[in-house]
Design a protein around this nucleic acid. Sequence first.
DNA 1: AAATACTACAACCGCGCTTTA
DNA 2: ATAAAGCGCGGTTGTAGTATT
Length: 267
Amino acid sequence: MAELGVVLDEKRRLKKGAWSAEEDQKLTAYIKRHGIWNWSRMAEPAGLRRSGKSCRLRWMNYLRPNLRHGNFTKEEVETIIKLHEFLGNKWSAIASKLDGRTDNEVKNYWNTRLKKQFKGKSMQKPRKSEAARVCDSVDANHESSSQEEAGSSTPTSTPVQLSNLGDFTGIQTSSPENFGSLSSNQAIGVLGDKGNSFDNNLCSSYVDDEVQSYLWAQNFSVEDAHMVQDVGALFMDSTATVLYPGWPLEMASSASLEDFAVNLWEN
DNA sequence: AAATACTACAACCGCGCTTTA
DNA sequence: ATAAAGCGCGGTTGTAGTATT
């Protein structure tokens, strides 16, 4: 009998369940030495009786460098709420905007903590006209940082966190000039880790056409697997009425997401 | 102190998309 | 052109830890 909570796939003699420290060490050491080349074939030479899928999951969600574990900050909570509002359950897309967080972590956080806050409460969808105005806005932070770094025509890509979510300003008008030089496929296909890019399924059913247009029109970088440039700007509409659960209607227009997140975070 | 309920999170599964042969 | 393999995503489940009765 295997250790508690751990079973073996009798056919393939693959181990399932919780990872031991030794397994973690083996996987980490192997990847450090050889890199990631083929998940399903790496397990054996790494000395692991695990499926490639299991190895990948463990690495992506736990062992990967620069991951942050532990409590979400107020800002991260704000970001999750706001992004979820527009993207729905696109956990990888949401996670890509949070430095060092995984889709699994974001999903778990939503399902265990935030979901119940929103359960049964309607999140009012922004009107189309409002969404349209949002489409071309650019996160001021992204703008300035890319200008600083760039000085070239190549879109730069620094992992950027949404900030100033309470300050829904800086909306600009959309224009064809903002279409990137990359095709949407180029822009969205990302070198290395496509999992961190937006894909064709990005837009959930309640993302407005205009928002989708925005996504396809942006200058996405191909240099950074983690980046989807300026999507945060999508969510900076100061006028979109969003009803946060537990908040009276009359507060909807005046209260910021930040207020809501603070309230949520502190309780 | 024990039993039960609840919460948080790691991990698995199935599906769909992309890449490769 | 197509089948197979590989990969990533989102949904779900299992379990350990904590709170409550």
